[in-house]
Computed example of a mutant assay.
Amino acid sequence: MSAPVRLLIVDDHPVVRDGLRGMFAGDPGFEVVGEAADGAEALARAATLHPDVVLMDLRMPGMDGVTAIGRLARSGSTSRVLVLTTYDTDADVLPAIEAGATGYLLKDAPREELVRAVRTAARGEAVLSPSVAGRLMGRLRTPAEEPLSQRELEVLTLVARGASNREAAVRLFISEATVKTHLLHVYAKLGVNDRAAAVAAAYDRGLLTPGGR
């Protein structure tokens, strides 16, 4: 009989950690060796516990998941990181994978899918949730999108917060005509026709995030 997969659970919500621990504790094929509430604690625990798989949340106070994944990879750790999060925007998925994550799964995944994903990750094989796989395939099939400039992002951020063109112009110390020009460029780059659609597309692509840019 093979040794159980050793797991480290990293999430800033105690209820989530408790739920995951309970899920795996009843399966003899797994051993939860520890928990962490943020990226820094995860690095410290991984260095002493040497888990086979780290179940890593992304958005946590202090050190976030992507930073922790990158540092874990650079440390030479043999632990595999399986991201388990509620976010699947390009701004979340791509940096996590580039940092060294072995897999990316969403928290609404069925128990069977999560268990299978952890086993797959423990073998060093890539595993992606269907929505994430579809998003990455779409990126590969679509020519690289022209990025928004810093000024265009600033204008779009103000628009998302409800500012009119005039208000945005005052805030950015530019003319109202310049604001309109920036918005036209934003519409063209995002493939939309109006302000509301531009804001929606920006949130969908991770260019804007609730409570931030």
Rank of each mutant, 00 (worst) to 15 (best):
A188H: 09
R59K: 08
D92K: 04
A168T: 09
V159Y: 00
R119Q: 14
L172V: 02
T86M: 15
A163C: 10
D88K: 11
A144K: 11
V33K: 11
R141E: 14
V83E: 01
G65A: 00
I9K: 14
D204K: 15
G138Y: 05
T209R: 15
A73Y: 01
A109Q: 12
L190T: 05
P95A: 10
A188K: 12
L148K: 08
T78P: 05
D12F: 04
A109W: 13
K189T: 06
V54T: 06
G62P: 07
A133P: 01
G206Q: 08
M23S: 11
F30N: 15
R45K: 15
G124E: 01
T142F: 00
L20A: 12
E41K: 03
E41M: 00
R141I: 09
M63F: 05
A168V: 04
A3M: 10
M137D: 00
L158P: 01
G19I: 02
A177Q: 12
A46H: 07
E146F: 07
G26M: 12
L172M: 05
L106H: 12
D194S: 10
E167T: 09
A3D: 13
G29V: 10
G39V: 06
E167K: 13
V199H: 08
V53W: 07
E41A: 08
Y87F: 13
G211K: 04
Y187F: 14
Y187I: 03
V33P: 04
K189M: 07
P51T: 08
G70W: 06
I69G: 05
D57E: 11
L153Q: 13
A101M: 04
A68K: 04
V115E: 04
V118R: 07
R195H: 01
R141W: 02
G206F: 07
G191H: 06
P143A: 07
A201V: 09
P147C: 09
L72V: 03
V33T: 13
G100H: 02
L20P: 06
G206C: 14
Y104H: 04
A196H: 03
L136N: 01
L55F: 14
R151F: 12
V53K: 07
D18E: 15
G62D: 05
V159P: 00
V199P: 11
G138N: 05
L156I: 09
A188L: 10
V118E: 09
H50V: 11
G22K: 15
N193A: 12
G138K: 02
A121D: 02
P147E: 05
T89P: 04
R141S: 10
P51K: 10
V132N: 03
L55S: 12
E112C: 08
F30M: 14
L94G: 03
